[in-house]
Design a protein around this nucleic acid. Structure first.
Lengths: 124, 124
DNA sequence: CAGGGATTGAGAACCGTTATCACTATCGGC
DNA sequence: GCCGATAGTGATAACGGTTCTCAATCCCTG
């Protein structure tokens, strides 16, 4: 419903990259917004369930969240600064479907992420 | 190098699905093979670094491991029993590359997994 | 303004993973 | 064979992210 939940949505709305719960917590606290870590986790979980935010797992297992469009899409993510672009991939959808079918798998789903270095990030 | 590391490779060699470190630990112990959890994690990490096993993150953040072919491939995974098929996806590779280029991202990489229910698993 | 259900948040608990460190196995040279 | 160096092992402690607990609080309704 409301209040700190709006605060969280607000924080995500301004952000182009995926953020962790802990980052959001730190940012909000230093910005003077009193909020509990548990509340952030709860809100993010709810928002993820309703499809209002997308969730992504770091290589280290950490969960990252981002406000995204509601229609199906994938992400192109800068592995340095985190800048994220939503991309469509009709060809990939079809491929996934075909692969599943060919091997006798039904009810197919898929995860696809593309990583790279964006224009603004040095090679380092 | 050896001994318990061979044991771990052996345990993975027989297995078609991705397994967690904890599962391997439990299996080996109940099978009467004395081994430490730390050793398993170390071995899996090494094997992952050398490309001898593939790593996959559960939705809950747990790491799963599987002995796989060394050339580039993706996975078709049964979300019920875990049965896994390695699949090639040249079209997807090319798509990922093109998407990155179109948005000015360089040095592209990507993750692709397809999930479904295999022939042998009921709907439940 | 009172009652009641939902929400909050500090802290404890959890769980997978990694670090610590003493002990052990292995291997090359003598 | 025997020694010493080196790498590997494993019980346990520490860690880090996430979830749970529960008392305090908010907010709506009557």
């Amino acid at each position: 419903m409301t209040r700190q939940r709006d605060v969280i949505l607000q924080a995500l709305a301004d952000e182009e990259a995926f953020r962790s719960a802990q980052e959001l917590y730190a940012d909000l606290r230093t910005a003077g917004t009193p909020i509990g870590l548990a509340t952030i986790y709860r809100a993010l979980q709810t928002l993820a369930d309703t499809g209002d935010v997308d969730v992504l797992r770091t290589e280290s297992g950490e969960a990252l969240y981002r406000r995204c469009g509601t229609r199906h899409h994938h992400h192109l993510i800068c592995r340095s600064c985190g800048k994220t672009v939503e991309v469509a991939a009709d060809a990939v959808e079809q491929w996934a479907h075909a692969v599943a079918k060919r091997h006798g798998f039904r009810d197919p789903a898929h995860t696809v992420e593309v990583f790279g270095l964006c224009r603004d990030c040095p090679d380092a």
